[in-house]
Design a protein around this nucleic acid. Structure first.
Lengths: 201, 201
DNA sequence: GTAAGATTATACTGATCGGTACAATAATAG
DNA sequence: CTATTATTGTACCGATCAGTATAATCTTAC
């Protein structure tokens, strides 16, 4: 066992609680008192374990990407048929976006809208944009693979197509945040999939 | 002329300045000192003319809808061909969303993402949701007209189609806020229009 | 046992928040 | 001119913000 008084909380659980708060309230909107209450710890414990508010947010973002984003990415990569993969990916995202057990919407997208705000630290803005870029790239890589597999017309612009699906995904996040139902968003995914390039006819 | 000392600022201009600040910083992120500095007035003048921060925000939202939203709506309603109308509408929105002279993104969408935050007054959340709903309804009404004009396949679900285009629009707003270029968003609009229902073939 | 090390809880810091009291100022009304 | 009315600038209010100093507490090392 370690020297000194042992901490009487689990840092992983505390970080998950902090993630929930940031997800719901944003960086600016989440106050230290709200955070410490949700995490069940005091401010000195928070600062000793996670650093300041900015680095706690960055840790929460990392956790979000490892848990939420990674799961959807797996769906995207596993399904062999690219069209079905993208559709399943969007469905997976919609399920998460509208999960009543979660704060609503997407942590990264919610944060991005918050981002222009005066006092948001530059490191957070950079991390959020990078997270968006990574997600879009994930879709693009999947489409590129589909193109190499002959699952897309030869002249398909995979970057543009990825940008399209990622924009739809962003819109789904906003709609979810504003209270749209899961059924409605599923229907939107169905409409969006009609943007999938048809073979020459 | 009126009794008493005349005010030495134009309320309309001051409101426009406040709109810019709220658009950029959100309700929570816009501080009274930032607002008064941008508006060129003092706090007592602000409170005497516009009421408190909440009612100032609601006035700014109203102004936004009258200026920005109304313009795009006109584009949507004017063009007789429904498909071209929707495309022109989205292009008009993209031009606004990526206008370097504007704060970036959409006032309403930026605000919506901010909205779950703890201290956002209920009246603001209601007004933002209503603004979203009105925009979606605007699209739906246009599609309904198109359906009655025989410009859409008979079995088209105009509500679902409107939800789709509105979701795309929401996504465009997020992408613009995160710095996507106008060219890229135009390309996304092109891809999104492929979701327009084709006649039976 | 006692000393050392790490975490705890509490109380505090200076700054900023939204909002307001108050007195000086600038106009009209008589 | 004086009185009235409304806006102005300044200084202030209590509350809350992010972050920290301090001391009590709990553990291991010896």
């Amino acid at each position: 066992m370690e020297r000194g008084r042992p901490r009487n909380f689990d840092p992983d659980i505390a970080l998950d609680r902090a993630l929930q708060v940031f997800w719901r309230d944003g960086f600016q909107g989440a106050s230290l008192s709200t955070l410490t209450e949700a995490m069940g710890i005091n401010k000195p414990s928070l600062y000793a374990t996670f650093g300041d508010k900015e680095s706690l947010y960055l840790s929460a973002l990392k956790r979000y990407r490892e848990c939420e984003s990674a799961h959807h990415g797996q769906v995207l990569d596993t399904e062999p048929d690219a069209r079905r993969a993208v559709e399943a990916f969007l469905h997976s995202c919609v399920r998460s976006l509208t999960d009543p057990a979660k704060p609503g919407g997407c942590f990264v997208l919610n944060g991005t809208a918050d981002c222009g705000q005066v006092d948001t630290p530059a490191a957070i803005q950079v991390a959020l944009r990078q997270a968006l870029r990574v997600s879009e790239t994930m879709i693009k890589e999947r489409l590129k693979r589909a193109s190499e597999d002959g699952q897309l017309p030869a002249n398909t612009d995979v970057s543009a197509l990825a940008a399209y699906f990622f924009t739809v995904l962003s819109g789904l996040g906003v709609q979810a945040k504003s209270g749209a139902s899961r059924v409605k968003l599923f229907s939107v995914v169905g409409a969006a999939m009609r943007g999938w390039p048809e073979p020459e006819r």
